[in-house]
Design a protein around this nucleic acid. Structure first.
Length: 147
DNA sequence: GCCAACGTTGGC
DNA sequence: GCCAACGTTGGC
């Protein structure tokens, strides 16, 4: 799951009450479908810092609440307002995530791109813009082994 | 339903 | 700040 650290980084999650935060503001259908349909309580996710000095994987979090409507879509004053989403028929969903740990080092995107083991990992494919993407067990274990 | 125009993402 | 890669929008 990607986030820009100048907006919301791993340290921000660490400092939240209960170290938990709703992953709001996602306005992409593929990412929404994953949050709404696939991500389950207790599932683990990598926290990825994008749009920063060293883009890369910085930590691990877990899903603490399964998909529910993103209320910011209903707020006309919010940056992520969407008039086509309503409480009766919500278009956008989010999950809550809870801090698990910070990796002992950032694993840079540049490094992840070098491993043939990760050539099918969506994150390293050219032009990828998904903010949430699946990680296979094999990929997960391999990446953890790089720490 | 096509597709040009436009906006956004995000690495570099 | 540049720009490639995409997703979305809207005229037709």
């Amino acid at each position: 799951m990607k986030s820009e650290p100048n907006e919301f980084g791993i340290d921000d999650l660490f400092n939240r009450p209960h170290q938990t935060e709703p992953w709001d503001g996602v306005r992409n259908y593929q990412a929404r479908n994953m949050m709404r349909d696939q991500m389950k309580i207790g599932d683990l996710a990598f926290f990825y810092h994008s749009n920063c000095d060293i883009p890369g994987i910085v930590g691990i979090m877990k899903i603490s609440r399964e998909g529910y409507p993103d209320p910011f879509a209903f707020d006309p004053d919010d940056k992520h307002f969407d008039p086509k989403s309503s409480p009766d028929n919500p278009r956008w969903f989010m999950v809550d995530v809870q801090y698990v740990k910070k990796l002992s080092r950032t694993i840079p995107l540049q490094e992840l791109k070098q491993y043939s083991e990760l050539e099918d990992f969506a994150l390293v494919r050219r032009g990828n813009r998904l903010s949430i993407m699946p990680v296979s067990k094999t990929q997960w274990d391999f990446i953890l082994g790089l720490e």
